[in-house]
Computed example of a mutant assay.
Amino acid sequence: MRISTTIFLTDETITPVRLARELEQRGFAGLYLPEHTHIPVSRDTAHPAGVPLPREYARTLDPFVALGQAAAVTERLALGTGVTLVAQHDPIALAKRVATLDHLSGGRFTFGVGYGWNREEAADHGVTWSTRRALTSDRLDLMRALWAPLPTGHTSASGPSLRPSEAWPKPAGGAPRTLLGGAAGPRLFDEIAARADGWMPVGGRGLTETLPVLRAAWEAAGRDPKTLQVVPYAVLPSAGKLAHYEELGCEEVVLQLPPGGEAEVLGVLDDFARYL
């Protein structure tokens, strides 16, 4: 099982370059970065964990810029978002950004996609909260049209349609591996089966019960059971927990690093090294 990491990189933490080099030298498989464009000060949305919003949420680096730095100083380290808030992006510009990073990194990019939890952040991007899932689906379809080998259009139900277009570079493998985040449920699982390569469940709790449901939705959509990928995300590890994920067929797990300075983060990497 591959051991990857995630961290809130900010203007106060270890740098992307230093972290990426250390991860590759130590044998970790990948680096995933979250996204928040901004955090409105006056908020109505509670943090999902039920605690005051941690400082790092408002200070996150742009994940694509940071991952570009990480790609430039590594050769094998996998790179990913955990997660990109697709509904908050112009899909044509985002498709270019994803394709460029995947192309320049030699196909090392994983496109982690999510729907978000902060209503105020989404509203500032013009997103009506109740439509964000449908908007994400539509924008993913439009992006795949731009990644197609031949000029392909897309008729949009939620915005301007895309005429058949040339768009280069293409992602290295035709389209990057795409993992959807979100809470378990039939709606999410049907969306994963329709548009993704797998699921990125935060924390990885309850997989014994939920994985059979996801696999049923996957197979009902005509997908090959062997191709489903489930990547537990932001995990605080223990030997027993990782062994459980491996027994469930998970081939990768993403461990949570603290949003700290160089000494703190490298110390945690030293501790996590026992799981490699």
Rank of each mutant, 00 (worst) to 15 (best):
A196R: 10
Y245N: 03
A243S: 12
L248Q: 07
A194N: 08
G222K: 11
T208Q: 14
G204A: 09
D224I: 01
A217N: 05
L211S: 07
G198M: 13
E209A: 15
A263F: 04
D197R: 07
E251A: 13
C250E: 06
C250F: 04
S238F: 01
E247F: 00
R215P: 11
L207S: 05
G203Q: 09
A234H: 05
E209V: 09
G198F: 13
V231N: 03
L207A: 10
P259W: 01
G249K: 04
E264L: 07
P212G: 06
A193M: 07
G222P: 11
G206F: 12
M200K: 08
V253W: 05
E219P: 02
D197M: 11
A239M: 10
L255M: 03
R215Y: 05
A196T: 12
T210Q: 15
P225V: 06
G240Y: 05
Y245C: 02
R223H: 10
L211H: 08
E247K: 11
Y233Q: 10
Y233W: 10
A196I: 11
V235Q: 01
L228F: 02
R195W: 02
G261E: 11
L207T: 03
V213P: 00
L207C: 07
G204Q: 03
A194V: 01
E252V: 00
V202E: 13
E219W: 05
C250R: 02
R205F: 14
P237M: 07
W199K: 12
E209W: 09
K226N: 15
G204I: 03
M200F: 13
V265S: 08
Q256V: 08
E247A: 08
A263N: 08
V202Q: 14
S238H: 01
L228G: 06
K241M: 12
S238Y: 01
E262R: 09
A239D: 12
P212D: 07
E262V: 05
E219A: 13
A220M: 06
Q256A: 14
A194Y: 01
Q229M: 13
A196M: 10
V202P: 06
K226T: 14
A243V: 05
L236Q: 09
R195T: 07
